[in-house]
Computed example of a mutant assay.
Amino acid sequence: MESELGGDPGARGAMGKATSRRTVLKAGAWSAPVIALAVASPAAAASTAASIELVSGPFEGVDVGDPIPLVFSVTGVADGVTATGTILTGDTVVEWQDGGTIAFAAVADGMLFFPATVLSHGTFQVEIAVGGAKELFTITVSAG
């Protein structure tokens, strides 16, 4: 007995009957939305927007050589995720405590801490990137 799937005797259902093309197409039509939903779910789960806010400052009455803590509040990012802080302009105003213009910090209790050292008074820009979010902050350091 030939099946409707091109004569393949192995193309039989659980009851030993031939599986028709119509049955195969019906199963495919029902499985397509399930597969599409399974593929779309991880993206939807990861769609929580991360946000970053500077919570330290203003930096007034600061002397050259003083440390200043750049502290940021982070939402939508799990503790332990690593953030990057990059001094984009004003690298003569501050530097990260390790002496460079790029630093890394881990989110802890929804906060990021980047210690910097004042090199002179003025304005600088720092970019913080974490959890898919990237924010640019303009910060001024002034003498007292």
Rank of each mutant, 00 (worst) to 15 (best):
Phe104Val: 01
Gly85Ile: 00
Asp98His: 15
Asp66Ser: 14
Gly99His: 13
Val74Asp: 09
Gln97Asp: 13
Ala105Thr: 02
Ser73Leu: 10
Ala108Lys: 10
Leu88Asp: 10
Thr92Leu: 04
Gly99Glu: 05
Ala108Phe: 05
Gly76Arg: 08
Ile87Phe: 02
Gln97Ile: 13
Thr92Ile: 00
Val77Asn: 06
Thr92Ala: 13
Val77Lys: 04
Ile87Trp: 04
Met111Arg: 13
Phe104Glu: 09
Val77Leu: 03
Gly110Met: 10
Ala103Lys: 00
Asp98Lys: 10
Gly99Ser: 08
Thr117Gln: 09
Gly99Arg: 11
Ser73Gly: 12
Ser73Glu: 13
Ala78Gln: 06
Asp109Cys: 03
Asp98Ala: 15
Thr92Tyr: 11
Val94Leu: 06
Ile102Asn: 06
Val71Lys: 10
Leu119Asn: 14
Ser120Asp: 14
Asp91Cys: 00
Ala78Lys: 00
Pro67Asn: 14
Asp66Gln: 11
Ala83Asn: 02
Ser120Ile: 08
Ile68Cys: 01
Asp91Lys: 05
Ile68Arg: 07
Glu95Gln: 15
Val94Thr: 12
Ala108Leu: 14
Phe72Gln: 08
Leu70Trp: 14
Phe113Asn: 11
Val118His: 04
Val71Asp: 05
Leu119Arg: 13
Asp79Ala: 06
Gly90Leu: 04
Asp109Gln: 13
Thr75Met: 03
Phe104Leu: 12
Pro69Trp: 07
Thr101Cys: 01
Pro67Ile: 11
Asp79Glu: 08
Gly85His: 00
Gly100Asn: 03
Phe113Thr: 07
Val107Asn: 08
